[in-house]
Nucleic acid binder design. Structure first.
Length: 884
RNA sequence: AGGCGGAUAGCUCAGUCGGUAGAGCGCAGCUCUUACACAGCUGUUGUCGCGGGUUCGAUCCCCGCUCCGCCUACCA
């Protein structure tokens, strides 16, 4: 690069991200093993993806945000630990392997427990690090030497320790309770594992006749006629005058030969249906409670698979759906069905398989939540933990304040086995850290371990500290716990976030993390949730391959406005790709004009070039705004700032404005200064862009041998405070002059390439030195300086002067006249608005003086501007007169 | 039923600690000017959801309403 000609080819013409990404990834994997343990620690744990998973948009967004945080902190010199890992995903994984077996014609039950679990492990090994590899490709700079699995030996020990400790503290109990049961997964679920779906159903009105006087009857409205056979009472509200006479009487249950009492309960809503509620304690949460209050006992008619059992009379042997149809037929045939009407209601379904859940009475393990929740509430209330955005606090409190005990036992095989043994001899229940040989109570050898496993989320709740070696007092725990930041989606706020807080406080006496960044859901371009059944799932890997990973990450970062769902469209990724190209080509240009090894500016204060001063002052502003955005987790804003600076200021103005400098002699001081400025700005800019676009920025930094954060070879200087006030002004004036010329040029349809002879007239001494202005006007406005001081032509006005464009009579001036008229009208409206405000006595008296001052100044400026335009318009009209 | 979020240019969305309303995409015109056509220049469009209130001034704050999304909830 000896001269500005093309003797050197510079960078490749296009950013070849395929190969660049590959070599970066290789380097990073090597680098992660040797983390420097200096600097203030900064730690995060990744939300462990399910072992069953494949990288989806949610992961991509989640990891991009975390990686931006990690890289940003790393560049600040922090010692970053970001722990990767995978969740064993109990029910989900069990389902996958069950399906595989079924495809082979094998019922998993017939395999037996040990063989089945073995099979799941084998499957786990066969997937290998599938999803983690995909995470790597995203550029996520995790601490790979810290990878964990929720069922690895250390983690399993931690889980068992927690279980035992909770039990010993009385925070854990086993009891027979109503729980949500999935008849397909054949296991209990916790409250949060049940999601609600609105379904169109029917309300059936059923007649129950008086046991003594068959002519009297009550009508009950129900959505579940199949449970009539399990009715143990009818209930009315004690305040309900319509039914006072019925209380204490007995009615006959249709389809059976049983009679049941009519009772009162205040929870019955007189306004719903007929005001009479049928009570089936075994198959409804509410009814169970009412049943308890009235000592009704239990009658179960549905088995664990959702099939009506022998107690179900005419419905016996039917699955629930068919049982309902049958029940209606039977009721109708015995004239018990009064009528039916359409009815919408929300039914609970299993979050793993969408099967309707059944309330079911069974023996399960529960965590007593109230005490844990109290501390968890306090931690957030006292701002030991902060939500970003903070409105999630409300949702969090809402749940915490209405917490119910957590059912943690699952009737599946894949997961952490519950460490509880029952002695067959003395019936003593032992909960133990180590598998027992004999009963600790009686010494008997007939011990049977509880067959259940723990809710997957029970182990997930330990993630922030168990991954660091808890319950051991490890160096990692001492140095990195509590973690600084948790990044996750709102959909697992209760499943995961709240429980980590509770367990963290309970077990480590400290919050597990300080800040929680809650991000939104990624939807498709129409705002629909991406689901397999809709077929609108966009594969992140596909987008990465098509547009490059940097572009993909940038598009996510730009779209990640807090508190708002993201609509991802290919166009947005395309736009981001265009930006990456732009960035690349800008640096290609630099490589063509700046000799290799050019140092940064060593003394900013001695910088003289108008454009150089301007870009430095703009960069200083960018740095400040960027820092503010990044520190408040506004990564979207940080990315946008970089985007705008790069494209609209650096490329559109600065690079164009300084091209002339490189036509000067290589030893020219301005040329040298501009080269130094390019290096300074370029290097800092790459650092700012690096957290979001790690590949392209590192590649460019390496090619240019910058000592900056991208390559880990230096730190970017902070410009704020080092750039004198007003350094940007002269070039800003040039920008407005050029803008005016370009407008006129465009309206007159003069090709951008056609040079126009012009004269510069400055009306104010602050407007600048013509000799300094002309080189920029020539280049940016494609003007040539006229020697004729009385040059005639169109005026392109600006704040304190105008340019005379010597166009001759060759063009159509009426267009320019139209434009100017429009412009003048617009300005007039604005002036009227502001001066109208100023003429109101109220405003001048009550508004802050600086606001009034600003408006006064504004009117003056606007009027000056208008005057310039008016003169220009006169000029055009004169031309129009001359050239009819 | 309660809670949260949204309603701003044709589309997707920023934004304003209350004081001349922005970007990307699109559209129109002119340009292949050796960094970039994945580009440049210029232009284009807004009762800032509706109704009140506070204020000198509201798109922004407060109250109410309408629509859209989501979450929580034992209305059978």
């Amino acid at each position: 690069m000896q001269d500005s000609g093309g003797s050197s080819s510079g960078l490749p013409k296009r950013f070849e991200w395929e190969s660049v990404e590959a070599s970066c990834l290789e380097r990073w994997n090597l680098a992660s093993a040797s983390r420097a343990s200096e600097g203030e620690p900064f730690s995060m744990v990744v939300p462990p993806p399910n072992i069953t998973g494949r990288l989806h948009m949610g992961h991509a967004l989640n990891l991009t945000i975390q990686d931006v945080a990690a890289r940003y902190r790393r560049m600040q010199g922090r010692d970053v630990l970001w722990i990767p890992g995978i969740d064993h995903a109990g029910i989900a994984a069990q389902n996958v392997v069950e399906r595989q077996l079924r495809a082979e014609g094998v019922d998993y039950k017939s395999l037996g427990r040990d063989a089945f679990v073995e099979r799941v492990w084998r499957w786990k090994e066969s997937i290998g690090s599938g999803i983690l590899d995909q995470i790597r490709r995203l550029g996520a700079s995790l601490s790979w030497d810290h990878e964990r699995f929720t069922m690895d030996p250390g983690f399993s020990r931690a889980v068992r320790e927690v279980f035992v400790r909770l039990y010993e503290d009385g925070a854990l109990y086993r009891a027979e309770r109503m729980i949500h049961w999935c008849p397909r997964c054949l296991t209990a679920l916790s409250d949060v594992e049940v999601t609600h779906q609105d379904r169109d159903g029917e309300l059936y009105f059923i007649r129950y006749v008086d046991a003594e006087r068959p002519e009297d009857s009550l009508v009950v409205a129900t959505t579940r006629p199949e449970t009539v056979v399990a009715d143990l009472a009818l209930a009315v509200n004690p305040e309900d005058d319509r039914y006072v006479a019925w209380v204490g009487r007995r009615v006959r249950v249709p389809m059976t030969d049983r009679t049941i009492p009519v009772v009162t309960d205040t929870t019955v809503d007189p306004g719903f249906g007929t005001g009479v509620l049928k009570i089936t304690p075994s198959h409804s949460m509410v009814d169970f409670e009412i049943g308890q209050r009235h000592g009704l006992g239990a009658l179960s008619v549905i088995d664990e698979r959702g099939i009506m059992n022998a107690q179900a009379g005419p419905l016996s042997g039917l699955p629930l759906e068919k049982a309902r149809v049958r029940a209606v037929e039977v009721l109708d045939s015995v004239e018990s069905l009064v009528r039916r009407e359409p009815h919408k209601n929300a039914i609970g379904v299993c979050y793993r398989c969408q099967t309707e859940v059944e309330p079911r009475l069974s023996l399960q393990w529960f965590v007593r939540m109230a005490p844990l929740a109290a501390r968890a509430r306090e931690a957030v209330a006292a701002e030991e933990i902060r939500f970003f955005p903070d409105n999630w606090e409300k949702t969090y409190f809402e749940w915490i304040d209405n917490i119910r005990d957590w059912c943690i036992s699952r009737q599946i095989w894949w997961g952490h086995r519950i460490p509880a043994w029952t002695c067959q001899d003395c019936h003593h229940l032992s909960v133990l850290r180590n598998d027992p040989e004999v009963c600790p109570h009686c010494g008997g050898v007939n011990l049977i371990q509880d067959p259940d496993v723990l809710d997957t989320w029970f182990s997930s709740a330990l993630w922030p500290f168990a991954t660091m070696g808890w319950p051991e007092e490890t160096p990692d725990l001492r140095r990195f716990y509590p973690t600084n930041l948790l990044v996750t989606g709102f959909d697992i706020l209760f499943f995961w976030v709240a429980r980590m807080i509770m367990m963290g406080l309970y077990l480590t006496d400290r919050v597990p993390f300080r800040d929680i960044y809650i991000h939104a859901l990624v939807r498709d371009e129409f705002g629909q949730k991406m689901t397999k059944s809709r077929g609108n799932v966009v594969d992140p890997l596909e987008l990465m391959e098509r547009f490059g990973t940097d572009a993909f990450r940038l598009s996510l970062a730009l779209l990640a406005t807090p508190g708002r769902d993201i609509r991802l469209s290919v166009e947005r990724v395309e736009a981001a790709r265009n930006f990456v190209s732009k960035l690349w080509s800008a640096f290609r240009y630099i490589s063509l004009v700046v000799p290799p090894g050019t140092p940064s500016l060593d003394d900013l204060a001695s910088c003289r070039g108008i454009a150089n001063r301007w870009i430095l002052s703009e960069l200083a502003r960018l740095q400040t705004a960027y820092r503010e955005a990044m520190e408040s987790y506004r990564y979207d804003e940080g990315a946008l700032l970089v985007y705008r600076f790069t494209w609209s200021l650096f490329c559109d103005w600065y690079l164009e404005a300084t091209k002339g400098d490189f036509e000067r002699d290589p030893s020219d001081p301005l040329r040298i200064e501009t080269a130094g400025t390019l290096v300074t700005v370029g290097s800092i800019l790459l650092d700012l862009a690096h957290p979001v676009m790690p590949f392209v920025t590192e590649e460019l930094s390496r090619l240019f041998e910058f000592s900056n954060g991208c390559t880990g070879t230096g730190e970017s200087p902070v410009l704020a405070g080092r750039i004198p006030e007003g350094w940007g002004e002269p070039f800003d004036r040039i920008r407005s002059m050029v803008g005016s010329v370009r407008q006129t040029r465009s309206v007159m349809k003069i090709p951008p390439t056609q040079e126009i002879t012009s004269a510069l007239v400055l009306l104010s001494p602050d407007a600048g030195d013509p000799a300094a202005l002309w080189p920029f006007l020539e280049r940016l406005g494609k003007l040539s300086r006229s020697a004729d001081p009385s040059l005639k032509g169109l005026r392109a006005p600006f704040r304190d002067g105008y340019l005379v464009l010597g166009l001759g009579g060759l063009v159509d001036f009426s267009r320019e006249a139209d434009r100017l008229e429009k412009e003048i009208l617009k300005l007039g409206e604005k002036i009227a608005e502001v001066s109208g405000r100023l003429s109101r006595e109220d405003f001048v008296r009550k508004a802050p003086p600086e606001v009034v001052e600003k408006d006064r100044g504004l009117v003056v400026t606007l009027e000056e501007e208008r005057k310039g335009l008016e003169v220009a318009l006169d000029q055009v009209r004169a031309f129009l007169g001359e050239t009819p």
